[in-house]
């Protein structure tokens, strides 16, 4: 559905501040797929996210939706609406005085919708969220907790029924409880066959969520594929290991030292079960 072809992005070309943020990036996301793009700060993630959202103009290379360039003169604007975008800090995309107004903003711009229809659609979107936002309708977006703000940003994007969603660092700066709520919400979207792209500086929580992942390093793709298969295979690039969650890294090191362990786990609970199994096996011998 979304295709990026030979995308190169250079900031401030020809000035002393020239930075090559992306170099020859090509990948494809099919409908209903969840793609993770993992890279540390400065790897080009946010630049890539802005290209996917149509916020930057691709001078070298192109971004296509269903084969058509999103900067095509005809219908480019409509096409860009098919991809919803959730920014790194959701406060940047919130501006209305109440949660209801925030979510309904897009719908209120359309002339042929009655206020009743708008309300129904807003309630419908909010009901489907976990946790639901229904009880917070009259609150100011700026009174919400960090986790609730992200839910609100998701709701205000979902209301216009995009086919694909791009998340830029969906859980940066959140505590682990909020983080697992957001991951759970993304899982639900994935089950409902939304096309998803998640950009993150850490692969924590993404191993089981994403169908495929791409590792970005200094603006280039250094590895891509199915993360579980990828972890199960022997040699892993150092630049990639550094981006894996600490517990996964520990399992990889154990495997390198000859312990037969499954490294494609990342939460304390799944890792503890795997270690329990190994220690019990050891006890029996």
């Amino acid at each position: 559905m979304i295709e990026v072809k030979h995308l190169t992005h250079i900031y401030n070309p020809g000035t002393p501040w020239e930075i090559k943020a992306l170099e020859q990036i090509s990948f494809r996301v099919v409908r209903g797929e969840c793609l993770g793009i993992i890279g540390e700060s400065g790897s080009g993630k946010s630049t890539l996210a802005q290209h996917l959202a149509g916020l930057l103009f691709p001078r070298l290379g192109s971004v296509l939706i269903d084969g058509a360039n999103i900067y095509n003169a005809h219908g480019g604007r409509e096409m860009r609406k098919r991809v919803g975008f959730i920014f790194q800090s959701p406060a940047d995309q919130l501006f209305e005085e109440s949660v209801f107004k925030e979510i309904s903003f897009g719908l209120r711009q359309e002339k042929n919708l009655s206020s009743r229809e708008i309300e129904e659609r807003v309630r419908d979107v909010c009901r489907k969220l976990h946790p639901p936002l229904e009880d917070l309708m009259d609150r100011s977006p700026f009174e919400l907790s960090a986790g609730e703000r992200i839910m609100l940003a998701i709701a205000s994007v979902l209301i216009s029924k995009p086919e694909a969603l791009v998340f830029d660092e969906p859980y940066a700066g959140l505590d682990p409880n909020n983080r697992s709520e957001i991951l759970h919400q993304i899982e639900i979207l994935h089950r409902n066959k939304k096309t998803l792209i998640i950009l993150s500086n850490q692969s924590e929580g993404l191993i089981h969520l994403c169908d495929r992942v791409i590792f970005l390093y200094q603006g280039k793709i250094v590895a891509k594929g199915r993360l579980q298969e990828f972890l199960a295979s022997g040699e892993i690039d150092r630049r990639v290991t550094d981006l894996l969650p600490p517990l996964t890294r520990m399992l990889i090191h154990l495997r390198e030292k000859g312990i037969e362990v499954n490294p494609s786990l990342d939460t304390p609970s799944s890792v503890s079960l795997e270690i329990h199994r190994l220690l019990q096996k050891k006890g029996k011998n």
């Binding site: 090191h253 154990l254 312990i259 270690i275």
Partner: peptide
């Protein structure tokens, strides 16, 4: 730390 845990598990296994 993760390194201490790794060492401990390695010797335990």
């Amino acid at each position: 730390t993760i390194e201490e845990m790794e060492m401990f598990l390695l010797s335990a296994m």
